[in-house]
Computed example of a mutant assay.
Amino acid sequence: MNVSTYSIKDLEQLSGIKAHTLRIWEQRYSLLSPKRTDTNIRYYDDDDLKLILNVALLNDNGYKISKIAKMDIAEIREEVVKLTERTLTHDDQIHALTISMIEMEEERFDKVLSTNILKIGFEQTMLNIVYPFMSKIGVLWQTGAINPAQEHFISNLVRQKLIVAIDGQVYKGGGKKFLLFLPEGELHEISLLFAAYLIKLKGHKVIYLGQSTPRADLELVYKMHKPDYLMTVITTAPSAEQVQEYIDNLASMYQESEIILSGYQIIGQDLRFPKNVKTMNYIREIKEYIEEMELISQEK
């Protein structure tokens, strides 16, 4: 894996500490040791990032920077582990997950998630910690502040947790039928998996096709199951130039179902949505949508 390099702006985005403050800490306490390129441009490496993430977490929780600066790396890390085990502040937990991602440390990542799931439940852990965290690293990945290996590492760990949670929900019959899929070429599956979990949790049937579903396969499964709802999340595929055509084709081919769309290529874009298409800004809206749907059914 290539060694990652970071600008001071990258450190600011990842740690939440202003670049001006980082420079002061660097000068006054020698916390950071920037390297220089052949053209004399300052940069930081993974060790610098890990250190500043840990320092930021301690500082946010009342540790004075003068005290932190006197600790060695092992002492700082030990204090951070103690802190993340006892605090339930969402920002702190997101910070702890970020450190685990940078260090690619599976056990620590798993411990943070498992502790929160035990204390506040799987759903609240996903909504208040994992999703904000995934949104954060999505932006950082797009700007090059983290590398693809780190993003894949974390996504796969979250995916494993979701699959286990989904398997734990037993369908008992009844309810509505939801067909969940991603378009061909689309691989970003976390939101769709969480939607599958919430839908099954509410007692509805989920037919899950997952990543990069060929159109022919989607059409075949649709004819077999005749679902009440189709749901997909469009993050990168189809492209922005092709999304409108894709939406129109879905709406035309599956007129007997309501189609639920979300994702970066959908939300906030200048698109036209046919009458059988509904959009969701955030995945948490699927829960509200299902509850609303159930109320309407009860009233009929």
Rank of each mutant, 00 (worst) to 15 (best):
G175P: 00
L193C: 15
H204M: 08
T115E: 13
L14S: 10
S262F: 06
A149C: 13
Q160V: 01
M293S: 15
Y197M: 13
K70T: 10
S297I: 12
L230C: 04
Q142W: 04
E107R: 03
K82F: 07
E26N: 03
L83I: 07
L127G: 15
R86A: 02
G268M: 11
V130F: 02
A196L: 04
F109H: 05
L295H: 15
Y197H: 10
L220T: 12
Q265D: 10
S135W: 11
W141C: 12
L97F: 09
N281W: 02
I24W: 01
H90A: 14
Y222F: 08
F153W: 09
E294L: 02
K202T: 15
D45K: 12
S239I: 01
S114T: 15
E107N: 14
V112I: 15
A237K: 14
L209Q: 06
E245S: 12
H225R: 00
Q242N: 10
V112R: 06
I166Q: 13
V277I: 08
L179E: 03
Y43H: 06
K275G: 09
N147H: 12
D110Y: 09
E189D: 11
I41L: 13
L53D: 01
M71R: 05
Q150A: 09
K161W: 11
K111M: 11
G173A: 01
D167H: 08
Y29P: 02
E79V: 06
Y289P: 06
Y282E: 14
N276P: 14
S297H: 13
E219V: 15
R108D: 00
R284P: 07
S252F: 06
E241W: 00
S252M: 12
T279R: 10
G203W: 04
L88E: 07
E85K: 13
L230M: 03
E106P: 13
Q142R: 14
E184G: 07
A165P: 06
S15T: 09
T279K: 12
D10C: 11
V221E: 06
